[in-house]
Structure formats: structure tokens, C-alpha cells
Amino acid sequence: MEPKPAAPLKHTSKSQKLAKLRRLVARFEPGVAHGPHIQTGFADIDAYLRQQVVPAGLPCGGLHEVVATRVGDMPAALGFAHRLAVRFLDRPHTQDMLLYGQTHMACREAGQPYGPALPAHGLSADRLVYIDGARLPDLLWAGEEALLCSAIGCIVLSSWDEAPSFTASRRLSLAARAAERPLVMALGAQAGGSASAATTRWQVEALPQQGWHVRLAKLRMSYTATPPPEGWRLYPQSLSQNSAQNILQSQPRGQAASRTARAG
């Protein structure tokens, strides 16, 4: 007995079915592939995004998560989030503001953004609006409100030990895509790892000699590309302090004891 010709779906392999479903889902997702996008300014990452991802850059409309790998890496994660925010704000002809919000815990643990240092990181202090401690739900609410405001160019929210639920991140992600404005969510090491609807998730770790190790842990823009698992080692220019000299090198450790004795 000959087998009856089945529906075409049954013949296709699992991967083909998935691809078809993904195309279907992509039709309902607001335009990630067509909106404005930016280059991160890191050559390796940009090269990867250009080759592998449809908009050839990081889309402005989206929720981007930056997660610290270890507890002590939060400053590095925030630095990377800040770096992305500055690139988002750097679009021509905009004087848009950066809204930076923190939970109470993040305020206490990671510190507040410091105005006099901002110019070194590509932002003038008068373009910063800062939320000095709020509960996470209030902070997420503020993020959604700010996405609707035409004068805010980018939003960075930071939480130390609590991550938004999947529903919340899905909501923010959709709002960000619809508004075509980015929302960067920086999460401490204790908060990361939960399911989220973010467009990208970056795992950041501090490296000696003023570097960052950045791994793209999740990429929701493209269904084919897989980011390199080893990540990238980045040495951003703005952090290097070439003019200054490492004073520890000029003071060999052996002399420490004798100098202490002399001083005593």
C-alpha cells in the first residue's frame, strides 16, 4: 500500500518548520529589521553585526540588556551600557536627553553617575536626567513613560539584584520598538539570568588594563546568526590613561617594607 501524499508541512524537517514559524512570528513583530540602527563603535562587534544581522547594526527601537558577569563587574556593565547610550544619543541633529534611572539598591551599591566625569564618556552633563532611587516597578513605569516622550533619546535603567519579569520586559521591548527609541537595562550579577524579551543581551566582565570582555549572550533580531561564544575583548579609548604612569611599577614591592620602616 502506497503512503498517502501528506501535507507539505509533514515532509519538511524540524528546522524548516521552525523557520516557517519564525517568519510567521516576524510578521507580527513591529519592525526591528527596518528601523534606525547604530554602530557600537567597537570594530569587532560592528563587523559581526554587519555580516550577520539584517539591519547591519544595533537597532534603536529595542530593549538591550547589559548584565554584569560577576558582582564586581557592575561598573564595567554600566560603563558599557553608558557607551551604548551615548552612541544611541549620537544620532545627528538631536539634542535629546538621556534618562538614567536606578533602583534604591543600585544607587547604594553602584553609585550615582558623576557629572564632572561625563564629558570624558561622550555626554554633556546637562543632557542627563537622573532618577535617584526608585522601586523597580516604578522605574520600569518611568522607562515606559519616557519612551513616549519625544525629547528623551535614550533610557538607561539599572537594577542591582532584581530583574524585570518576562511580562515587564516584553512590554518594555514592544514599547521601545514602537517608539523606535532604545531602552538599555543594566543588571547586576545577582539579577541576571532570568528569561527576558530583550532584543540583545550583553554579558560584560572587566579585564585588566582597562578592558572589557563582552559576550553577546542573546540576539533576538536574527534567527540565523549565532554570536561568537567567546565574545570580544574591548579596550575602549576613553578609558585609557596613557599620560599617567603606573606608580606601582616605579616602586618595586621589595622596597615597601624598608620605606615603611623609614617613615616609621
Partner: peptide, 9 residues
């Protein structure tokens, strides 16, 4: 500005 920390406790 480069000698100042981006985050102040």
C-alpha cells in the same frame, strides 16, 4: 574628566 570616576558612591 578622565580622571574622575563615572560612578560616585
Amino acid at each position: 574628566p578622565a580622571t574622575r570616576p563615572l560612578f560616585m558612591l
